[in-house]
């Protein structure tokens, strides 16, 4: 997806040296998350008191499974982009900053994959 000007891309503008890629990814993932988050908030509470079988049934429903997978992917993607900004704002030592960014990325990637695989295991 390319919504920035070629010049901005070539010059890699910005203190992070990656121009506005990051900014766009954060906004677009936020946009996708709006309906998904509304859906999740209003459907998850009903499931919490349920027995195991009912919850399995709910997740195995194709609509639920698709929404949950999309939600997991975009939520972890957006969360990773967000945490990166927070880390970059507060950690000034370059080495520690890079380590923390990569660490948070790895942890969120792991849990994102776990979520998607668990949904698939239940649904398929």
């Amino acid at each position: 997806m390319r919504l920035e000007l070629p010049l901005a891309r070539v010059k890699g503008l910005g203190t992070s040296g990656e121009g506005s890629h990051h900014w766009w990814r954060q906004r677009l993932s936020a946009l996708v998350l709006i309906p998904l988050t509304f859906w999740f908030l209003f459907s998850i509470v009903d499931q919490l008191g349920q027995g195991h079988y009912m919850v399995q049934e709910w997740i195995a429903d194709p609509f639920t499974a698709c929404c949950l997978i999309l939600y997991s992917i975009f939520m972890f993607y957006h969360a990773q982009l967000g945490l990166q900004v927070v880390i970059e704002d507060y950690v000034h030592n370059r080495g520690i900053r890079l380590t923390l960014v990569l660490f948070s990325r790895a942890v969120l990637l792991l849990f994102g994959i776990l979520a998607v695989f668990s949904v698939l295991r239940i649904a398929l």
Binding site: H52, V55, Q56, I59, L68, S72, M75, F76, A79, G82, L83, V86, V107, L108, F111, G112, L114, A115, S118, V119, R121, I122
Partner: peptide
């Protein structure tokens, strides 16, 4: 944002517990 990022991890553990079933769930 940071709190719900931790929540996201909890959500994935919850889905995992449904997949495993039994005592986990």
């Amino acid at each position: 944002g940071v709190i719900i990022a931790l929540g996201a991890i909890a959500i994935s553990l919850w889905i995992e517990s449904v997949a495993r079933g039994g005592a986990w769930y």
